[in-house]
Design a binder for these strands. Structure first.
Lengths: 111, 111
DNA sequence: ATCAATGCATAACATTCTTATGTATATTTG
DNA sequence: CAAATATACATAAGAATGTTATGCATTGAT
């Protein structure tokens, strides 16, 4: 089972920031695989969404990038900048809080 | 504190279906107020998002509507149709599951 | 050799909100 | 009682954020 795609909306940036806050550096493809692995294939990040997101986070100054070559193939490692670490914590707590609120909303009897 | 607006994306339909699955019928404005109340003002549904959503759910056959007049003011009560009840359960479990997955993803050390 | 996986990227399009605006009635408050 | 606030609907322009499709190139597996 894969979640309806609209659910991912709004959470992608935070997912990326969270992974980078736990790992010193990661590259795009690695992020897609890690998310697949951690969620048992329930969440699949598309490359069409991920790469523009990484570029946006970088241009916001939250990520720094190092380009490396593995053989002839390019690989771009992203890391959190200082402000990225800050932002990361904020976004993670906000999302975690939101998840709790939504779970509450979905579980209670609202009558 | 109000959540960043992008977080609501993709959850609105399910929120509406959930409220209607617990309440026989509700009208738009009532839904906005109920969500505010239940979430301690953390989630505020805007009318610009809600009314088109209600119309979409209705045109998908998930909701039925009854128009009533309170004095001279119109009020549109929405209820789940048979297929709406079905869909409602599906969407609610999917979202609850997604929330758990996301919480897990945000809480663990992914290193 | 061929196919799948790795690894990046972008563009057209779709979806789903926000913000702004509009209309009207009912209630509260100074 | 006038004015402000709350109730109650609606839609349109624009922003944000994703999907799908496509492209290119290297590397590993059968």
């Amino acid at each position: 089972m894969i979640y309806s795609s609209e659910l991912i909306k709004g959470t992608l940036k935070t997912i990326v920031l969270k992974l980078l806050s736990d790992n010193n550096r990661m590259y795009g493809y690695e992020i897609t695989q890690k998310v697949k692995e951690l969620t048992g294939d329930k969440i699949q990040i598309t490359e069409g969404a991920l790469y523009p997101t990484l570029h946006a986070l970088e241009s916001d100054g939250l990520l720094t990038v190092e380009t490396e070559f593995i053989g002839k193939r390019v690989r771009k490692y992203y890391s959190l900048s200082i402000s990225g670490k800050q932002k990361s914590q904020e976004k993670i707590s906000e999302l975690a809080d939101f998840m709790n609120t939504m779970k509450y909303l979905l579980d209670i009897k609202t009558a």
